[in-house]
Simulated scan of single mutants.
Amino acid sequence: MMSYDISTRVSLRWLPDPPSEPSDVLVYNVGHYFLDLRVLKADRSIQWAMAGEKQIISTEPLKCRWLKIIDSFGASEPDEASFTTLPNGDELETGSMPCPERGGAATKYEEVWRNLNPREGVEHAWILQSVDGNIFLGRIGGGYMALREGKREGFGARREEWDIANGWNVKYEIGSVNGVPSFAAHGKIMFDKEESWKVGNIITISGNEYIVRAWEDM
């Protein structure tokens, strides 16, 4: 069974309103950890970004809990939601969470999620967390995501993609990303030994220490 996946959100619905999709959403899950970046299509700003641990509460029906170690909305309680598979293979997530458009009031919602195939690249999937806890890095094949919660500078995010013709390209570079590792800038140097990493290892990238939280051979 694969213990990694990539998903994108197809639609968000705050009940009883109709569904819409204002954001470009991408989620990495590797092992028991996740990175989740939601970028507003209108102005390419961070709508919401978070990373942490994902727990499976039950399998029949599928119910999950997310423990957010970093969160662009600030500290909050864990989120929980249930999932059902739709006829076309997409997943319907249902639950209740604060709605920004309604002053933060707890509101029932529906999100439709679709799994994506990894982009072509090395056959590794991993998630790292900085020793100080403020940075998460994730890679699945030819895709890379990095989230940083700055104490003074605010939140920052990178999302980068590999293609054969042009190598690594920057999809998003938002907010405070100084010092956040980048494949597009110098990934070959920084990540050249990733095939030897083991969960729990402490590795050094650009002078900063990171804990290998999850690692999978694809």
Results as ranks from 00 to 15, higher is better:
residue 112 V to W: 00
residue 112 V to E: 05
residue 112 V to R: 06
residue 114 R to S: 11
residue 115 N to V: 02
residue 115 N to C: 00
residue 115 N to Q: 07
residue 116 L to G: 05
residue 117 N to V: 13
residue 119 R to P: 06
residue 120 E to L: 15
residue 120 E to Q: 13
residue 121 G to M: 03
residue 122 V to N: 13
residue 123 E to W: 00
residue 124 H to Y: 14
residue 124 H to K: 15
residue 125 A to T: 01
residue 126 W to K: 01
residue 127 I to Y: 12
residue 128 L to W: 09
residue 129 Q to W: 06
residue 129 Q to T: 00
residue 130 S to I: 07
residue 130 S to K: 08
residue 130 S to P: 09
residue 131 V to D: 08
residue 132 D to K: 06
residue 132 D to W: 07
residue 133 G to M: 06
residue 134 N to A: 11
residue 134 N to V: 02
residue 134 N to D: 07
residue 134 N to W: 00
residue 135 I to D: 13
residue 135 I to V: 15
residue 136 F to H: 04
residue 137 L to P: 10
residue 142 G to W: 03
residue 142 G to F: 04
residue 142 G to C: 03
residue 142 G to Q: 01
residue 143 G to C: 08
residue 145 M to T: 02
residue 145 M to A: 01
residue 146 A to H: 05
residue 146 A to R: 04
residue 148 R to K: 15
residue 148 R to P: 09
residue 149 E to R: 09
residue 149 E to Y: 02
residue 150 G to W: 09
residue 151 K to I: 12
residue 153 E to S: 15
residue 153 E to K: 10
residue 153 E to D: 14
residue 153 E to T: 14
residue 154 G to W: 10
residue 154 G to D: 09
residue 154 G to I: 09
residue 155 F to W: 15
residue 155 F to N: 09
residue 155 F to K: 12
residue 156 G to Y: 01
residue 156 G to V: 04
residue 156 G to K: 00
residue 157 A to Y: 05
